[in-house]
C-alpha cells in the first residue's frame, strides 16, 4: 500500500513537472508581446520592458528562474494587470469558481444518483425511459449550448433569475445548474448500469432468498455495492466541471478562474495563462490520485500492492 502510494505520488509529480515544462515552452512559441499597450510600443520601449520582466534572457535561464520561483510559490506578475501577482489574481478568482463548481458537482451527483437508482429499480418502465432520455440529452448537448439556452429562457424570457451579474447568491444558481447537467447525465447513466449489474448478482438473489425484505436488500446490498465504483467517476466529473467553467463563467459573467483564463488567452498574458494551467493540472492530477487511493480503500477487491500479476 505504502509503496503503491509513493509510486503514484511520484508519477503525479513527474506529470506535473512535464506539464510545467511543456507549458513554458509553448508560451515561448506564442507570437506577439504580452504588453498591453502593444499597439503603440516602440522597439526601444519594448527592449526596456523585456529587460524589466527578464524576457531578454536566454530561454534556459528564464526557465530555471521560473521553476525556482514556482517552487517558492511565486507565479510571477500579470502583464495585463500591472503590479498584480498571478497568485493574488488566482486567489481573487478561485472562490466563485469553486462555489459554482462544487454546487454543480453536489447537485448533479445527488440528482444523478436519484435518477439512476430509480431508473434501475423501475427498469424498462416509463420512469426508466424518461431518466435515460434525460441522461442522453445531458451527455450530448454541449454545456455551453445548454447554458446559453438557460440564460435565454430562464434569465431573459422568464426573468426568474439574474442573467449575468455576480451580485448575490441567486447569481450562482444558473451557472451551477448549467455545470451540473453533464454531471447528472454521467452519474445517472453510470449508477443505472452498476445497479442493474448488482441486481443480477448471486448475492442479491441469496439475500432475497434468505428473506430480507426488499428495501433491506436494495439499501444494504444493491445501492451500497453499486455506489463504490461511483468514486471512480470523480476524476472525469472534475474534468467536466473544470472544462465547463471555462465557457460557463464567460456566459454568466462569473468572475472566476475560467473566465480569467479565456480572457488571458485572448491578450496573451503569459504568466496568468501558465499559472492557471498549472493550477488546473495540479487539481486534476490530485483528483486522480485521490480517487485511486480512495477506491483502493473502499473496494477490498482492488489490490494496491502494485505490480502484482492477476
Amino acid at each position: 500500500m505504502k509503496r503503491y502510494l509513493i509510486q503514484r505520488f511520484a508519477y503525479a509529480l513527474i506529470t506535473l513537472f512535464i506539464i510545467v515544462t511543456a507549458t513554458f515552452l509553448l508560451m515561448q512559441l506564442l507570437p506577439g508581446t504580452p504588453y498591453s499597450n502593444a499597439e503603440k510600443l516602440t522597439e526601444s520601449q519594448r527592449a526596456i520592458l523585456d529587460a524589466k520582466y527578464g524576457l531578454d534572457k536566454p530561454v534556459a535561464i528564464q526557465y530555471i528562474t521560473y521553476i525556482g520561483n514556482l517552487v517558492q510559490g511565486d507565479l510571477g506578475y500579470s502583464f495585463q494587470y500591472q503590479g498584480r501577482t498571478v497568485m493574488s489574481m488566482i486567489g481573487d478568482r478561485i472562490g466563485p469558481s469553486a462555489l459554482i463548481g462544487l454546487q454543480g458537482l453536489v447537485f448533479g451527483t445527488i440528482i444523478g444518483l436519484v435518477l439512476g437508482i430509480i431508473s434501475a429499480l423501475r427498469h424498462n418502465t416509463a420512469v426508466d425511459y424518461v431518466s435515460v432520455t434525460i441522461a442522453v440529452l445531458g451527455m450530448s448537448i454541449p454545456s455551453f449550448v445548454f447554458a446559453a439556452l438557460l440564460q435565454y429562457y430562464i434569465g431573459v424570457k422568464l426573468g426568474w433569475l439574474p442573467v449575468a451579474l455576480w451580485e448575490n447568491y441567486q447569481s450562482t444558481i444558473l451557472p451551477s445548474l448549467a455545470l451540473s447537467v453533464t454531471v447528472i447525465a454521467t452519474v445517472a447513466r453510470f449508477i443505472r448500469s452498476e445497479m442493474l449489474e448488482v441486481l443480477g448478482q448471486d448475492y442479491v438473489t441469496t439475500a432475497r432468498a434468505k428473506g430480507l425484505n426488499e428495501s433491506g436488500v436494495i439499501w444494504k446490498h444493491v445501492i451500497r455495492n453499486a455506489l463504490i465504483p461511483v468514486v471512480t467517476m470523480l476524476g472525469p466529473l472534475a474534468v467536466s466541471i473544470m472544462t465547463g467553467t471555462l465557457v460557463i463563467e464567460k456566459i454568466f459573467g462569473v468572475p472566476g478562474l475560467g473566465e480569467q483564463f479565456t480572457l488571458s488567452i485572448l491578450v496573451l498574458d503569459y504568466s496568468v495563462i501558465m499559472g492557471i494551467t498549472l493550477l488546473y493540472s495540479a487539481l486534476f492530477i490530485f483528483v486522480v490520485f485521490f480517487v485511486d487511493v480512495l477506491y483502493g480503500l473502499l473496494d477490498p477487491r482492488i489490490d494496491l500492492k502494485g505490480g502484482s500479476k492477476a
Binding site: 506529470t15 509553448l26 507570437p31 488567452i265 493540472s281 486534476f284 486522480v288
Partner: peptide, 18 residues
Amino acid sequence: EILTGIPNLIVIILFILI
C-alpha cells in the same frame, strides 16, 4: 500514464494558440 494526467482541453487550447 503521464499523458492522461494532463487535462486535455487545456493542452488543446495551448496548441491552438501557437
